[in-house]
Simulated assay, not measured.
Amino acid sequence: MSGPRRDVDEELRARLRAAAGEHRPDRARILARVERGMAAGNRGPARARLPGRLRVAGATAAVAGILVAGGYTVASAVRDDAPARPPVAAPPGPRESESREPGSREPGSRESGSRESGPVWSSGAVDPHSNEFWAQSNVTLGTSTPLSALTVELRVAQTGSVTSTGAWRSLPEDDFAFTLDERDGFLVYRWTLRQGRTVPAGEWMFAGQYNHRRGGRDAGGDRYSAAATAASGPLTVRGGFTPGG
Rank of each mutant, 00 (worst) to 15 (best):
R15F: 03
L16M: 14
R17G: 12
A20H: 15
E22L: 14
H23C: 04
H23R: 14
P25N: 10
R29Q: 12
R36Y: 02
R36I: 01
G41D: 10
N42C: 09
G44Q: 05
G44W: 03
R47D: 12
L50E: 11
P51Q: 08
R53S: 12
G58A: 14
G58E: 12
T60S: 11
A62L: 13
V63D: 02
G65I: 06
I66Q: 06
L67R: 08
G71Q: 08
T73F: 04
T73Y: 03
A75Y: 12
A75N: 09
S76E: 12
A77K: 01
D81C: 02
P83V: 13
A84H: 04
A84M: 04
R85W: 11
P87I: 08
P87M: 08
V88R: 13
P91Q: 02
E96N: 03
E96W: 10
S104H: 10
S104T: 15
P107K: 09
G108W: 07
R110F: 10
E111G: 08
R115P: 00
S117W: 04
G118E: 08
S122D: 09
S123I: 01
G124Q: 02
G124Y: 03
N131E: 11
N131G: 14
E132L: 12
E132D: 14
F133I: 07
F133V: 12
W134K: 09
A135G: 13
Q136R: 08
N138A: 05
N138R: 07
V139L: 08
V139H: 00
G142R: 11
T145R: 13
T145G: 03
P146T: 11
L147K: 10
L147M: 15
L150P: 07
E153V: 14
L154E: 05
A157G: 11
A157P: 00
T159D: 07
G160W: 02
S161Q: 13
A167T: 01
A167E: 10
W168H: 09
W168E: 10
R169Y: 00
P172T: 01
P172E: 02
D175Y: 05
F176K: 04
T179E: 12
L180V: 13
L180A: 05
E182W: 02
G185D: 04
V188R: 14
Y189D: 09
R190A: 00
L193Y: 06
L193N: 09
Q195Y: 02
V199D: 07
Q209I: 01
Q209C: 06
N211R: 14
N211V: 09
H212T: 04
H212V: 05
G215S: 06
D218Y: 10
A219L: 03
A219I: 01
D222T: 04
S225G: 02
L235V: 15
G239A: 02
G240P: 01
T242F: 00
G244T: 03
